[in-house]
Amino acid sequence: MNKIISSASAGTLESSDVYIEVEPSENNEVSVESVVLKQFGDSIVKTAESVLDELDIKNAKVHIIDKGALDCVIRARLETALRRAEKENK
């Protein structure tokens, strides 16, 4: 199991991008704000959970602010944020 030990973020609030913040927590928790929440809200949560699974992380609080990013962008931004959070903040 991989652990995140600090808070970190990735992405931007530009249209078609996503801004993701992560911080250590007891369990994985995912919350989503999105301009396409009604159309893709469930899908975004599912994507985030699958990224957490793939990276074998079980202690991340993930907050996603989505401006209509494609699935691959959400994956990349989340993975980046989590990798950053595996290291100490400097």
Partner: peptide, 10 residues
């Protein structure tokens, strides 16, 4: 009609 294939993932 001129429109992009998708806008903000839609």
């Amino acid at each position: 009609i001129i429109a992009p294939l998708s806008r903000s993932r839609l």
